[in-house]
Design a protein around this nucleic acid. Structure first.
Lengths: 229, 229
DNA sequence: ATTACTAGTGTACGAGTAG
DNA sequence: TCTACTCGTACACTAGTAA
């Protein structure tokens, strides 16, 4: 006996997820088998076959439409994708909702500090965190491997989105942040993700100059509580 | 040429997700290849091979431990699982954050009504929705297929968890609900999921007796706004 | 352009089994 | 019990190509 046929194959599942990413959840999405294949890293022919298989299994509706296909998940497909998503969310969001970081104060690259200093971010930050940040960040260098791993969780946690803005000259993108606490001060942590290198740095903002308020010097140890929601 | 080897195979991905569900994100998890195989719907031998492949790819750490194996995701594995999750979340949470339901008032099975009438739920509901519910629910029968599909989204949306309680005799489980509005009244919608049949029913609660307040009779049409977050 | 057939091939699988 | 080897097979894939 091969496999319980009532269970979707990994191929079916990943194809379904890809279709969800393409927006085939609510309404029909226009997709060609070559584009789908490209997105999945397989050939056009294999993508075509996968769609046919998904249709056989009652997971998608498939109709020829102009140059390509119009595809939409059926109720069964949505159920499958939805429970897969719900399961994964349960797995990813398990654990503490509050992370304590410990690291060492360092000057940093003033990247976050630059953004916080822009007056256009004041209102968005007030809405997101409940305070207007002091124009400068407290940078912590994370050395312990456990801390770096913990930092990585912030990449994939939802966080709070601070919307971007334009000032006429250029546009400033949205920033993901988290509510936090440093010592007795209400604070926020910025999750600006550019490179994997960033996982050793934690950037905190607060209504006050944290460095001065807590009398922190370069290299001092410091801890930050981050609230995941 | 087969496939771009830098991309995980569907098999690798689903195995990784299963490991995440088993809690291999933060710390090592004790798992036997047969149990993993069972969870994945494959044989013990295949599960063993998949773990070896994942280790080869640098996605998990694997160590023999007593009777079975101790498995943990590496940084690369967490990154992969995390971005997969983030992508899927983006896909699933796309669309309106506010759903408008339209259906017909009917007597219902009084299931939700029974729960709301229990005094032990009063405080949890107050915390979750901001009001103590009138002991009875307004039941809407959804007939339009679009409404039923929309109703299905509530199954997989996160919602607000109303914690359960014990009253000495028995324990009452947690209930998922959403903030909502019926006419001019602040309300809530209960998402008690027992069977797929439930997707044609929407159960609303409010601080007042909605049926009386809105002068609704059996079979009257009525609409409910549900807020997904 | 497309979709999707056919043919041939690599591989993931289950079964059996050793350590 | 466990893990994980070998082996034979079923199948998902790529390539070629028709419509």
């Amino acid at each position: 006996m091969r496999r319980n046929r009532s269970r979707p194959t990994p191929q079916q599942l990943t194809t379904l997820v890809q279709l969800l990413k393409l927006g085939a959840a609510g309404s029909h999405v226009q997709v060609s088998s070559s584009r789908l294949g490209e997105a999945l890293g397989i050939s056009q022919q294999a993508a075509s076959k996968r769609l046919i298989e998904l249709e056989r299994g009652g997971l998608v509706e498939r109709a020829h439409s102009g140059r390509g296909l119009a595809v939409r998940l059926t109720g069964a497909g949505l159920s499958l994708g939805g429970s897969f998503y719900a399961d994964l969310r349960g797995a990813m969001e398990t654990g503490e909702r509050e992370l304590v970081f410990r690291g060492y104060v360092f000057a940093g690259l003033k990247e976050g500090g630059y953004y916080v200093s822009l007056s256009g971010y004041s209102k968005p930050f007030l809405d997101a965190l409940g305070f207007v940040p002091y124009p400068g960040t407290l940078n912590l260098r994370l050395t312990a491997e456990a801390m770096v791993e913990q930092r990585r969780r912030l990449r994939f946690a939802k966080g709070i989105e601070v919307p971007g803005f334009e000032d006429g000259k250029r546009a400033y993108g949205p920033v993901k942040c988290f509510k936090a606490r440093v010592g007795k001060y209400q604070a926020g942590v910025l999750a600006i993700e550019r490179t994997h290198y960033d996982d050793t740095v934690l950037e905190a903002v607060a209504p006050v100059n944290l460095r001065r308020a807590l009398r922190l010097k370069e290299g001092d140890e410091c801890s930050v509580e981050v609230y995941l929601d």
